[in-house]
Design a protein around this nucleic acid. Structure first.
Lengths: 341, 341
DNA sequence: TTGTACGCGTTATCAG
DNA sequence: CTGATAACGCGTACAA
């Protein structure tokens, strides 16, 4: 230890020959300080290299300037991109982001909801995967919460909503409009698990129904967890099962990229024999061969709206909760371009 | 406001009919507390829903339990993967990660080095891009610093080192051993900028020299910033320039993926006509067509060693600085497999 | 416009 | 083994 003690507000005050209050006024950019005094104090601050202490300030004001971001996995390009935009957005509000990874595990998600240990963040932006509505309602922590993703229950918290049913509906409808009738879905995970899987399956089924196409349970394949390798395996099993199919709708782009690999290895022509579409529009989808048609979900809008909601909630903690919808759009690329087939 | 005041240590103490110190002892798992007393206090804690306050604790102990991570860009899969591992590693030390994005901008990097605003982290893990040695030496902030990446100056701080010269040397030597002689490099950014570019160029040149191959300035192409699109453009310009080449060594995988796209569009056969190798081993490199040969840099080891160094420094702030080397290895894949050509 | 004094919630010292 | 009390650094009534 020993070497360098911290420079305190009182040290600056002593050095400048003024009171603590005056230094504090200068540091916090208070209005009514004489310019000459301001300059004098600023010089003392610079000379001593004073920098305000976060904990003292937090203890006094109750604000940390930190926002928690809880996502399943930063290694997932979708969440990495989202995190990047949220970090950038946070700076506009003079805040910083504390990252938590849940692994999509329910216990982990619940632990984070209850604030894991310490009141350290002013708010939490949370992209849940396995957590239940009751967990959300039962949470002990009272800090502002913004939920990202599937809209499930009622007005538990502010939300930035992704209409997965609509997204899936549009994706599958695009395949149908391309003349496909035997459309497989890769990405079912079972009834008891994530909303996102269920919603995307619902959208898939509704699109089939709207087009008067009968559903075939053989075409709905489990993928768990959602990833490139699991997607590839599921596609291989689909092929091996001998079921007839002319298109694959995938729960996300990672699954779709895995499916593309499987199809290529089995010498299927995409999109000639089989059309493929994913969801997320991760960067790679634009560059793979063939390029992957997908549903773009506006992550920049998600980031901006998350902080808009959070900021509003910090200003007035007791207002009504709000839900903001996230724009999405079909991206037509090679994997579903029947003109090329 | 109004609704829920925080539950303090003293509230628990009053509720349990004991002193603050005793409650604190229980909370912090102190040794010498009677089991019956411990249970009694724990019950009071649960009933009141008490949870310790981070700022008060920090103010007293001087520890925040937060570690800053400063990287150029989380959207880059390399840094996203690194961040993911660091977040996971942090939890083993009961710490959390605060993410900062520098954009590789020097001013931004310097600002983060001086602690931007508040003493809020116990240490900083920093992957610099543009910052100079003098900036590192001049930094005001005294918190423990772990530098990630190119080893440049002396013992400014603890380091987790990447031997970029050696990495590039191995990559280019692999191409040479495959019979290539006209090897282009995509990823030069000019003399005044990042160390990583300079070091990888040095490795490239040394490998050529070791094999007795003359260097050709025409083959060294600028790419800035390092990305997929810029890589593709640089490859297109290389092709358009009419220079003869039979291999491309790329500064990183993103550039290489862009180059692969350009080569495919111009109907080059990879690896038949042109072999390609990158650096980083991002996930996509394994799945693209043809799969991309690359140099794997052990990011898991980097994450573990970063925290090892940080922890050591927190324990003994005045010890000698250490530099730990990061393992790396050649990953042979389709893009350089001459047997397939 | 500037100075004084207090409290935010925690941990550490030291006496009992 | 437990209790009283003093810091930690800051912001802010309130007084001047």
């Amino acid at each position: 230890m020993a070497v360098s003690k911290h420079v305190r507000l009182s040290d600056v005050a002593a050095h400048a020959g003024v009171s603590i209050k005056t230094v504090s006024n200068v540091v916090n950019g208070f209005q009514h300080v004489r310019p000459s005094m301001r300059q004098h104090v600023q010089q003392a601050i610079d000379e001593l290299g004073y920098r305000p202490d976060a904990s003292g300030r937090t203890l006094r004001t109750g604000r940390t300037g930190l926002v928690g971001l809880a996502v399943p996995d930063l290694g997932n390009p979708y969440f990495a991109d989202l995190a990047q935009r949220l970090v950038a957005e946070a700076r506009k509000y003079d805040m910083r982001l504390l990252i938590e990874q849940t692994g999509g595990d329910r216990d982990e998600e619940v632990a984070i909801l209850s604030g894991r240990g310490a009141r350290m963040v002013d708010g939490l932006i949370f992209s849940p995967l396995s957590v239940h509505d009751e967990d959300l309602r039962n949470r002990k922590d009272q800090i502002p919460l913004v939920l990202l993703g599937e809209h499930e229950g009622g007005d538990i918290a502010d939300r930035v909503d992704i209409d997965s049913v609509g997204v899936a509906f549009d994706a599958v409808t695009h395949l149908i409009e391309g003349g496909r009738r035997r459309i497989a879905m890769l990405g079912w995970v079972g009834t008891n698990t994530t909303h996102v899987s269920r919603n995307r399956r619902d959208g898939y089924l509704r699109a089939l129904e709207a087009a008067g196409i009968a559903r075939d349970p053989e075409l709905i394949r489990v993928v768990h967890p959602w990833g490139r390798l699991t997607g590839k395996t599921a596609a291989e099993q689909l092929i091996a099962s001998g079921v007839e199919f002319d298109a694959i709708f995938c729960g996300n782009d990672a699954i779709a990229l895995g499916a593309l690999t499987a199809l290529r290895e089995k010498n299927f022509n995409v999109p000639g024999d089989v059309a493929v579409i994913g969801i997320d529009n991760i960067e790679e989808s634009e560059f793979c061969v063939p390029s992957l048609s997908t549903m773009a979900i506006d992550r920049q809008a998600m980031a901006e709206r998350s902080f808009k909601l959070l900021h509003r909630r910090l200003e007035s903690p007791d207002g009504e909760t709000a839900t903001l919808a996230t724009p999405y759009a079909l991206i037509r690329r090679g994997s579903s371009n029947t003109a090329e087939g």
